[in-house]
Amino acid sequence: GQTTVQVRVPYRVVGLVVGPKGATIKRIQQQTHTYIVTPSRDKEPVFEVTGMPENVDRAREEIEMHI
């Protein structure tokens, strides 16, 4: 079944991970077949990644490449 993982990043890289108009996070979602919730600016900088476990792992690696 599907799993949801929280990926915490430093505040300063949230914009990098999301990309211009969300382009980068969309690409990560498409490439890894996951659904990613982006943290809002006034909340903790935690991305929520949902999908099959192996896909979630890949998405987390993609996010962490920006750190």
Rank of each mutant, 00 (worst) to 15 (best):
R41L: 11
E48R: 12
L16V: 09
T3W: 00
K21M: 13
R8A: 05
P39V: 07
K21E: 12
P39F: 10
P45W: 01
G22T: 04
Q6C: 13
V46I: 12
H66N: 06
P20N: 14
Q6N: 04
Q2C: 12
Q29L: 01
T24S: 03
H66W: 12
I25V: 09
V17E: 06
E64T: 02
I25R: 08
T38N: 09
T38S: 13
V14D: 06
A23F: 01
T3C: 10
V37P: 03
V56G: 02
H66E: 12
D42P: 00
D42R: 08
V49I: 15
A23L: 09
T38W: 08
K26H: 04
A59Y: 00
P20L: 05
R58F: 06
D57G: 11
T50A: 05
K21N: 12
S40Y: 12
D42T: 10
N55E: 08
Q2Y: 13
D42C: 08
Y11V: 11
I25E: 02
P10Y: 00
V46H: 05
G15A: 13
K26A: 12
P53T: 08
E48S: 10
P53C: 06
I28M: 04
E54I: 08
E44W: 03
T24P: 00
E61A: 14
V14C: 01
E48G: 03
T4P: 01
V18Y: 10
P53F: 07
E62F: 11
G51H: 02
M65T: 14
K21W: 07
V13I: 08
T3K: 07
R41M: 11
V49W: 00
V7D: 05
T50K: 06
G22E: 08
P39W: 05
T34N: 02
K26T: 05
M52I: 11
Q31A: 10
V37N: 08
V18I: 14
Q6G: 11
S40A: 14
Q29M: 15
T38Q: 10
G22D: 06
E54T: 10
V5N: 06
G19W: 01
G51W: 00
E64D: 13
A23M: 13
V18S: 06
D57V: 12
N55C: 06
G19N: 04
Y11E: 15
Q31W: 00
P39N: 10
V17Q: 06
I36W: 03
D42I: 09
P53K: 13
K43N: 12
V7Y: 03
G19I: 00
L16C: 10
G15N: 10
V17Y: 06
Y11C: 04
G1D: 12
I36P: 03
Q29P: 02
G19D: 03
K43F: 08
L16F: 12
T38P: 13
Q30A: 14
G15S: 12
V37Y: 04
V17K: 06
V9N: 00
V9R: 05
H66G: 07
V13N: 11
I67K: 02
H66D: 05
K43V: 08
R58S: 05
R27S: 07
R41W: 10
R60H: 08
R27D: 04
R12L: 05
Q31S: 09
D57T: 14
R41P: 14
R41K: 14
E61M: 11
Q29K: 02
I36Q: 02
H66L: 15
G22L: 05
K26M: 10
I36M: 01
P53D: 05
V46G: 03
H33N: 15
Y11L: 13
Y11T: 15
V17W: 04
V37S: 13
E64S: 10
G22F: 03
P10D: 08
P20Y: 10
Q31Y: 05
K26R: 12
R12N: 15
T34S: 02
V17L: 08
N55M: 06
H66P: 01
Q30S: 07
H33Y: 08
Q6S: 13
P53M: 08
V37G: 08
T34V: 02
G51E: 05
V49C: 04
